[in-house]
Amino acid sequence: MSGFFKSSVGRKVAMALSAFFLMFFLIIHLAVNITSLFSENLFNEMSHFMGTNPLIQFALQPVLIFGVVFHFVMGFVLELKNKKANGVAYVRNNGAANSTWMSRNMIYSGLAILAFIALHFIDFWIPELNTKYVVGDMSGMHDGNFRYYHELVEKFHNPARVVAYVVAFVLLGLHLAHGFTSAFQSMGITAGRKKTLQSIGKAYSIIIPLGFVIVAVFHFFNH
């Protein structure tokens, strides 16, 4: 079995498996964020649950971190191997004649998402870890109220941050527009269901990033 994941086909399967996990995570993350549009209380309670439940914190979160790191590292490893397989470059190459821009530039949309994750971690994840595990304040409270909603709203006061988030989500959408169906193809489950999968992939790659954009823009205009 270890030989399988060293083969080119096995690495594609590994990329696809990590992609499935990350795509599932995006649905959960968006579901929590969307609640902030209509209920401060619900958002606070869901955030507190996600941030303090031991199963999520100490079982799912490490798996998620591994999935993110693996997907990026493997993506770079495969890109380098593929570049090596190319040999001499064409003087003239018309890639647009036979494939989409998204499919040919996954490494660049991926790099943009990596840059976004760095910003996102500095904004939310690192301060959160600091409050909970360094300072040791697991209450989720600030001045007698849950702090999560206010932290979210405060971050999106800054127009530069909102623009950065929107740009990142557009690139995430482009990454998903190819990545969704690509992951299924790599797992060998495209056969006979291509059209349906493409439609689901298109819907997913628009709805998920758009949802995140709406949350960011809503809080910018709604303060």
Binding site: S8, N98, S99, S186
Partner: peptide, 22 residues
């Protein structure tokens, strides 16, 4: 066949679909 393909130094498929078009 996959082992030989990898040994020959061919790259990894990223499902762009360019091959089936051409």
């Amino acid at each position: 066949m996959v082992a030989q393909m990898d040994l020959e130094g061919f790259g990894n498929c990223t499902n762009t679909g360019a091959c089936e078009v051409e």
